[in-house]
């Protein structure tokens, strides 16, 4: 039995996939790839396809020792038995997730206050209502982005889930094993990998929207030390004569709002370490559940394969 090799000349015409579906399949980019574990025997159709490939991208490789190849696949499966090992850098709360966007526009008043101090007070009041009151909301916004992109793959079962991705890799190895042993000698579902953490718990958490995150707001809050009145110095005022020649004052709060945005962003960054620490704890809880199930699953598969590895 020989290896089949496809080189980089493949242009994705698909001729080999159509004519030899037992040997070739399309990859995600539309190019041809050899089905995992499939080896070439003496097959006339395969020989024709190799000679007729319009870009001469397919060739035979060296002879393969099936016993040795099977052992290599078994070793890969054994390595998978360690499961997922989530490290802090895997769930890093990077700068990309620490950016606080601008607060709703507070703006400036029209010229309607009779003194600079009353304009300043009105500005602070508006700042408190429109911007300062939104701090939690802003923090939550930042954390949600982190949660959905970095943490959720550990709490979901869709295609982005870390479990689905590892299951796919294991399934590929099992497919290779199955092709080496012979599909007909193995159970029909041999290559299926459907291992996930306890789904009920995950889905209940998702339904309630409580995956993790609520407590992160308070973690960031602890790092944010300013009261609304601390921003008074950033409320600017301006005066102008009205048409009757009287002095009138207005306020401008943009600077205060921008200062608040920067302070909240700093607080988020200060809280980064605690957030990562917490996340790691949550994630490892559920990952350990998966790892336990995966080990049981792989032990069963390895015991089936052991009958063929003499």
């Amino acid at each position: 039995m020989k290896q089949i090799i496809i080189n980089e000349k493949c242009n994705g015409c698909g001729m080999c996939v159509v004519k030899c579906p037992n040997y070739f399949e399309s990859n995600d980019d539309g190019n041809a790839q050899v089905i995992k574990g499939v080896l070439a025997g003496n097959d006339a159709v395969l020989n024709t396809v190799i000679s007729e490939c319009p870009v001469k991208a397919i060739s035979f490789g060296g002879e393969v020792n099936i016993k040795q190849s099977l052992q290599e696949e078994v070793n890969k499966l054994k390595a998978f038995a360690n499961g997922l090992n989530v490290k802090r850098e895997d769930i890093a709360f990077t700068d990309a997730y620490c950016t606080v966007t601008t607060f709703p526009y507070v703006g400036s008043s029209s010229y309607e206050y009779s003194s600079s101090s009353s304009a300043e007070r009105a500005g602070l009041s508006k700042f408190r209502d429109r911007a300062y009151s939104q701090i939690d909301s802003k923090i939550l916004d930042v954390i949600t982005s982190y949660r959905v992109n970095i943490i959720k793959p550990y709490y979901s079962t869709d295609e982005k889930s870390v479990y689905t991705q590892l299951n796919k890799k294991i399934s590929d190895v099992l497919t290779a094993v199955s092709n080496l042993i012979g599909k007909n000698k193995l159970p029909s579902d041999f290559c299926n990998v459907d291992v996930y953490p306890e789904r009920d718990t995950v889905w209940k958490m998702l339904e309630k929207g409580e995956i993790i995150g609520e407590n992160f707001v308070s973690i960031v809050r602890r790092e944010f030390k300013y009261s609304a009145s601390d921003y008074q110095t950033y409320i600017d005022w301006d005066d102008m004569e009205d048409y009757r020649g009287k002095d009138k004052y207005c306020y401008r709060a943009q600077e205060a709002v921008e200062e608040l945005r920067k302070d909240v962003q700093s607080a988020v960054r200060w809280a980064r370490s605690d957030i990562e620490e917490n996340s790691l704890g949550y994630v490892n809880g559920i990952v350990n559940d998966y790892n336990r199930k995966l080990k049981t699953f792989l032990d069963k598969k390895l015991s089936i394969i052991a009958k063929f590895v003499v």
Binding site: D136, S137, L140, D141, T144, S145, R147, V148, N149, K208, G209, E210, I211, G213, E214, V217
Partner: peptide, 12 residues
Amino acid sequence: LAKRSKAYTREA
């Protein structure tokens, strides 16, 4: 906060 968290998650 819990409600808002759920809403934000939904949007994301």
